[in-house]
């Protein structure tokens, strides 16, 4: 068997693929963060809580109304997105004129409150959520057994990431958004409702997080802690990619997922800090991040 550094090649391919799957979650989550930061200049610490909410809404929909995975994939992000929009309109928007620190503290506090509430009612162990019947089982790729569901996660998250990037960079509404961040007064004077635009953006960011949450539900336990476990890594991804750079967040998400996967083969004990080591190195060499614009 061919080996690299004593690791069988087949095993290495398997780990690369696993890294790509985890990277999909990092990419989806950091995408939402980057959109919100890029357009609103808000460091959204509630992102992990919104991800957790997405998973919980899917769980509750199934438990109480019998709505299954496929509709939940649309409905849960809509519900969480609407919740996000309400929060932005009535609470977060009041903080735009203050130091960005206030937004950070507010969203951090909100995340703690949401997580605490769910932990109170559902405990820390989490709730089970079965994958949809269509995607159970797996495919033998020769070098590894790929669960069909995980393959689906990679495909769908790639589509959503590219779709969001196209929406913001290539469409008219995206150009309004970008213009509004550059100079909101000017854009408003053209008759565009800027506050509404920002509300929708925050709602979109929250919906993206919730979408990732629904995707994650069949893989991980639906647990109140699932968001806080992943959010710090996702922040590191955004920082490495360059705060606010959407393409940067997507690419970095996948790359760091793969880097983490490889660490798990060569030195598993370091797997949960490798992302931060990379972050430290990038910050030393390129303080604006890999894809960020300097200044």
């Amino acid at each position: 068997m061919t080996t690299i550094f004593g690791i069988p090649l087949a095993a290495l391919f398997g780990q690369l693929l696993i890294g790509l799957i985890n990277g999909s979650f990092y990419a989806l989550l950091s995408l939402g963060l980057a959109v919100i930061f890029g357009l609103l200049r808000v460091i959204n610490f509630a992102h992990g809580a919104q991800y957790m909410l997405g998973a919980f809404v899917a769980y509750l929909l199934l438990q109480y109304i019998g709505i299954g995975y496929w509709p939940a994939l649309i409905v849960a992000p809509l519900i969480v997105g609407a919740f996000g929009a309400l929060v932005e309109r009535f609470l977060l928007s009041r903080l735009y004129n203050l130091d960005p620190l206030y937004g950070l503290l507010f969203t951090f506090g909100m995340a703690l409150a949401i997580e605490g509430t769910f932990r109170y009612f559902y405990g820390a162990s989490g709730q089970p959520y079965a994958p949809p019947a269509l995607l159970t089982g797996g495919t033998n790729l020769g070098f590894m057994f790929l669960p069909n569901y995980r393959g689906w996660v990679v495909v769908v998250s790639l589509i959503v990431c590219i779709g969001t990037w196209l929406l913001i960079e290539k469409t008219k509404i995206g150009s309004y958004l970008r213009a509004a961040t550059e100079n909101s007064t000017l854009v408003q004077s053209f008759g565009i409702n800027v506050p509404m635009l920002l509300t929708l953006t925050y709602g979109l960011g929250a919906a993206l997080a919730a979408f990732a949450g629904v995707l994650a539900a069949p893989i991980y336990q639906v647990s109140p802690l699932m968001g806080s476990n992943i959010i710090i890594v996702v922040f590191a991804v955004v920082v490495v990619g360059g705060m606010g750079s959407i393409m940067g967040a997507i690419i970095t998400g996948y790359v760091l997922g793969v880097a983490e996967g490889l660490t798990k083969v060569f030195y598993p004990e370091a797997s949960n800090i490798v992302v931060f080591v990379i972050m430290a190195i990038v910050l030393l060499l390129r303080p604006a991040g890999l894809f960020g614009r300097d200044g």
Binding site: A11, G14, I18, M144, N229, K264
Partner: peptide, 12 residues
């Protein structure tokens, strides 16, 4: 949160 990589090593 993710054990897939460790499980894969155990599997092989």
């Amino acid at each position: 949160t993710d054990f897939s990589s460790f499980l894969l090593q155990a599997q092989s």
